[in-house]
């Protein structure tokens, strides 16, 4: 088997101690292959976001290990981890992290520029990413001038422009209506085939989870079930493409 791009080995996360201890994740193992699309679903508070934070190195597990491309995160230096967050892993979280003083275009260009990509190429790729999420026109506007749904799409554009290996998305469709949400998830679902990006998508919505190769269901901090997409006959396979 190829080395998983992301591997969680029996990770546990507790907050607090003693009688007030909250066991957010109680022992999850999960391996995501390069270019694989995994969805995580489960009731509110079951530990989905906590799991994703650990997967992205934003939080350290109380026990267990997180490996990126076969390397344990705890063995990496702070600089290596920062590099990973910039170049290897893209995030779209429940709450947005757009820089309000930068335009949509500049927000999307940011990870590329931090990675040393020339401004001309960064601009081109940012425009492509914005086009891919259906926001090709308002490049010079500031985040505050967009609707919540549009802001979320800018965040997705930024996450896909900056990453080629792993995208971690936590309810990226939370503020979108159904057709827009469908388009965004279809776009996310096209990334593995187009760019080889692996995706972990956290979502409450079964309609979005169903795009994934594998759907992992959590309950009270652990995985209770995994559904692997049944094989589709080759001739019947739908070509998932970017919305243009």
């Amino acid at each position: 088997m190829t080395t998983p791009i992301l591997e969680l080995r029996d990770v546990v996360k507790s907050y607090g101690a003693g009688p007030t201890e909250v066991r957010a994740v109680t022992g999850v193992s999960l391996a995501v292959a390069p270019g694989e699309f995994v969805a995580v679903r489960g009731p509110s508070g079951c530990g989905k976001s906590t799991l994703l934070h650990m997967a992205g190195g934003l939080e350290d597990p109380t026990a267990g290990h997180v490996l990126f491309d076969g390397r344990a995160l705890y063995e990496m230096s702070a600089a290596e981890r920062a590099g990973l967050r910039r170049g290897g892993v893209g995030y779209v979280f429940q709450r947005l992290n757009l820089v309000p003083s930068l335009t949509a275009m500049e927000n999307v260009m940011l990870p590329l520029e931090l990675d040393g990509v020339g401004s001309r190429e960064a601009k081109e790729r940012a425009a492509e990413a914005l086009d891919a999420v259906g926001l090709d026109r308002h490049l010079e506007r500031y985040p505050d001038d967009f609707s919540g749904g549009q802001q979320q799409r800018i965040a997705i554009a930024r996450a896909i422009v900056g990453t080629r290996r792993l995208l971690l998305a936590d309810e990226p469709t939370g503020s979108l209506d159904t057709p827009t949400g469908d388009a965004v998830v279809e776009l996310i679902a096209s990334l593995p085939a187009r760019l080889g990006t692996a995706v972990v998508l956290v979502t409450h919505e079964p309609r979005y989870a169903a795009w994934a190769d594998r759907v992992v269901s959590m309950r009270d901090g652990c995985v209770v079930d995994t559904t692997v997409a049944p094989p589709v006959r080759k001739s019947a396979r739908r070509t998932v493409g970017a919305r243009r």
Binding site: A189, V224, R237, R238
Partner: peptide
Amino acid sequence: TKQRSAVMAQLQLRRRG
């Protein structure tokens, strides 16, 4: 759990084909 997994698999199939 079993029923949910089966319905999810149907939905996954619908998304792909």
